[in-house]
Amino acid sequence: MPITTLTPSQGTVGTTVNINGTSLGTTVSVNFGGAVVSPTAVSNTVVTFVVPSSAPCSGQVSVSTNLSNGTRTNSVPFFVIVRPTTTGLDESCLPAAGGSLTVFGTGFAAGGTVNVGALTPVAFAAGGSNTQVTVTAPAHTPAGCFDTQQVTVTTAGGTGTAGTALIDYYNAPSLTTATLTPATGAAGTETTVSGATCLIGITNVTFTDSAATAFTGLPFTPIDATSIVTAVPAAAAAGAGAFTVTTCGGTSGPAGFTVT
């Protein structure tokens, strides 16, 4: 039995493979499944070849060699690992602290890493779903209010094509430096919040009145990343209240408004 092992015993198209064994010095070609491949190096104990482009996308393939005397050696298995693809994400944005992220695609069952931009890759175990994987995305603080990171998956089969899955990281909004015009008025008063930061991608505006009643989902009109127009709820109790703003990055601190 001239062939004993393959190194490596799995890979993808283009992988360089060593056939290890004995009495291999007269090898003239390598049988890779139904393909006949010319070796790149031959010795009595090692024959080297490259997995051809005709290899199947995935699955087991038999490997043997043809000797100059017309005989064929024994066959050993090689496993072709599918190159992963990334088709989408369950989230479009994350806070700077990171968080749970599910990646959809194919070829994930072999295990590997989820790569978010140039951040530290996050490993996931083999044996799970072939079409989706959930990891905790790493933290990342954008230089501005938000930035966009490429998401790919790497397995033993390679790295999925870039450009198909993107995630935005958001810094939390802040009303610390904001002013309200007006800052007092009757319930139902329209007010302009200005001088804030990172009012981008707003998902909720809340007013909490003096009775600690929180009115969520208030209508608002964005002006720019520092300003919006909103209104005190008509049912708000008189006294000191406050607005907060929520984005993918988190919820701001309060900006006070006194209901008269």
Rank of each mutant, 00 (worst) to 15 (best):
P121D: 09
G127Q: 06
S75I: 02
M1Q: 12
S54K: 09
T230W: 00
G128V: 04
T206P: 03
G112W: 01
V151I: 14
S68L: 14
T216M: 02
P254C: 14
V135Y: 02
M1S: 14
T141N: 12
Q10L: 13
A139H: 06
H140M: 12
A109F: 06
G70M: 09
V50P: 01
T86Y: 05
A242C: 06
G157I: 05
F78L: 08
T7V: 13
T102C: 08
D147V: 00
F124K: 12
G14N: 09
A255W: 02
T45I: 08
F220Q: 07
T258F: 04
T251P: 00
G201E: 08
L101M: 13
T221V: 15
G11W: 06
A41K: 08
T136C: 03
A162C: 07
S43C: 06
T12H: 09
V37K: 10
L166Y: 09
F146W: 13
G34R: 04
A123P: 00
N69P: 05
A137F: 12
T258R: 01
A35I: 02
T120Q: 11
G99V: 05
T159C: 10
I3Y: 05
G70W: 09
F146K: 06
L175G: 03
T197L: 13
L101P: 02
T159G: 08
T113W: 04
A178C: 13
V103R: 07
A118P: 01
A139W: 08
F215L: 05
G117C: 11
P39I: 07
T120M: 07
P254W: 13
A162E: 15
S62C: 03
G111K: 14
V42E: 02
A237F: 09
A96P: 00
Y170H: 08
A35N: 10
T159V: 15
G117Y: 11
S252N: 10
A234T: 15
G98R: 04
T87K: 13
T15V: 07
T246I: 08
